[in-house]
Amino acid sequence: MGLLAFGDTGWGDELFYATLMTIAVSITAMFIGFLFALIFTPLKLSKNKFFNLIGNSYTTVIRGVPELLVIYLFFFGGSGAVMYVASIFGYNEYIEINAFITGSFAIGIISGAYSTEVFRGAIQSIDKGQFEASQVLGLKRFVYFFKVIMPQMLRLAIPNLSNVWQITLKDTSLISVTGLVEIMRQSYIAAGSTRDPLFFYSFAAVLYLLLTFLSMKLINRLEIKYSRGF
């Protein structure tokens, strides 16, 4: 167990910070995913064929292409794209984007595609009468969306969102290829310098199991809270 000691002699503190990094990336990615879902869910549900096509292409492409390929696209293409945009505004210096931002963005886009599908499904399974009733009552669109549809949708979406969270959490392990020091990367470094890959990768597996287990417990409590009264 000396390998896991805190301080200079072991890898305990490094792995602890790496775990915090994994959690931070997962939460950021999930949040970015929600933002994407907020844009693309209405597009997918729209009656306009063009908007519909944009929404559908987003979810089909992202869900049909490996996560690793998307990460490589952002890793190799991210700073190029930002520099191109910057050059339009007259800034020609080299820009390097931080691995945390690239990684969260790549995972966020993937997570967003899954969230979009979840929200679409949840909205579609809300009883049609609810929409009609709010129209008859003359509710403003804003009130009707946030006070009538949103609470019902969240209740239906939470169980599936917990799946999306699990996928997102596990996908963050792939950002290790870009050099961001999260659980996988730290285990790789530790395994390389101690020549004990079996121990460190198994420990990484335990950390991920712990994270998925604890987050499931937390989400179950949320689920109970939101399904009160039904």
Binding site: S173, Y188, P197, Y201
Partner: peptide, 23 residues
Amino acid sequence: SYIFRGTPLLVQIFIIYFGLGQI
């Protein structure tokens, strides 16, 4: 099924490829 579904595939490959060779 809990262990294999709760950990990333990347960890599983690394354990099998890098880890097992150590024994």
